[in-house]
Simulated scan of single mutants.
Amino acid sequence: MSDEVQEPIVGRKSFAAVAINCAAKAGEWIKTKLGSYVSLNMKFSQHDLVTEIDKGSETMIRNLIMTHFPDHSFLGEEGVEPGPNASLEALDNMKEAEYLWIVDPIDGTTNFVHGFPFFVVSIALAHKGEIILGVVYDPSRDELFIAEKGKGAYVHGRRMRVSQEKAVHESLLATGFPADHQQALPLNMKQLQSVAPKARNIRASGSAALHMAYVAAGRLSGFWEMGLHPWDLAAGSLLIQESGGRVTGLNGEAYHLGIKDVVATSGDIHDELLKLLKEAGK
């Protein structure tokens, strides 16, 4: 009999347990800091903020994950230099990683700073570039959204399904205003002018991850935004896909970690919404 100690095999259930624990602990700590941050700094623009709470949340999550999975790679928002292309460069540097955790410690920092309760912790795990786990935790409402590849998506332990609207005119949609004021924001304004008259209504609440979780839960029919990063989208993309929805780039290409301009819907309205957005860009 060999004296060698066999390393335990870690399955997806353990991945999910760790992600849930990380999101819950970070989220509850963030909630206790609401209204009491000390430092506030701008990154790319006045719309792109960071506090010591963002950094503390990311450190907490990273330490917890690395305790369980020291051989895994980690991509967190606060560990990447600001700027529109920095996230893609960081992602490229990690393209050989077998397991990559992708984390936004507070998605919706501007909301957090102003005490507007629409911010979340977003944690995703990619295996060889494919998202296999996504967790979005909203501490303000104590709602945890989770999806595992091939196993469905859940909130409050209940299976999520996307909304059943068949057309944009029946749909409640959401968007986000880009930090890039030179090109992306003017285009976003044109998109709003194109889509708003056709939709039932549009919301812009300041957290891409939570908007995507709401699409997965059927609370929104669709969401689009430009200039996002892997940590904004990774967890939410799996939530939507596992709830029966569709996630693509603005040109209709299937979602991948390099997508920055995203369209996410229940599926039935996807082509119609894409057409409206493309027409606005002409």
Rank of each mutant, 00 (worst) to 15 (best):
A184W: 06
W224K: 06
V195I: 03
E143V: 02
D104G: 06
S243F: 02
A124C: 05
L250W: 12
A264V: 05
G267Q: 04
S73V: 00
R203V: 00
R200F: 00
R200H: 11
G134A: 09
N21K: 13
I30V: 12
G11T: 15
G11M: 05
D180P: 09
H169K: 15
Y255I: 06
I30D: 01
L40Y: 10
F177Y: 15
D48I: 13
L91Y: 10
Q164N: 12
V162E: 05
Y137W: 02
G35K: 02
S2T: 15
S207W: 01
E81G: 02
M1H: 14
R219F: 00
E253V: 10
L40S: 10
V155C: 07
F119K: 02
L100Q: 05
L239A: 11
D71A: 12
A124Q: 03
H114C: 02
K275V: 09
K25M: 12
Y99H: 15
F119Q: 00
V103M: 06
S122A: 15
W224F: 12
M60R: 07
A24C: 01
P178W: 01
L210F: 08
S2C: 03
K43L: 14
E81V: 06
L173G: 14
E279A: 15
D107T: 11
W29R: 15
L64M: 15
K33P: 04
Q191A: 11
L239K: 12
M1F: 11
H211E: 11
H181G: 02
L75N: 13
K190M: 14
R203W: 08
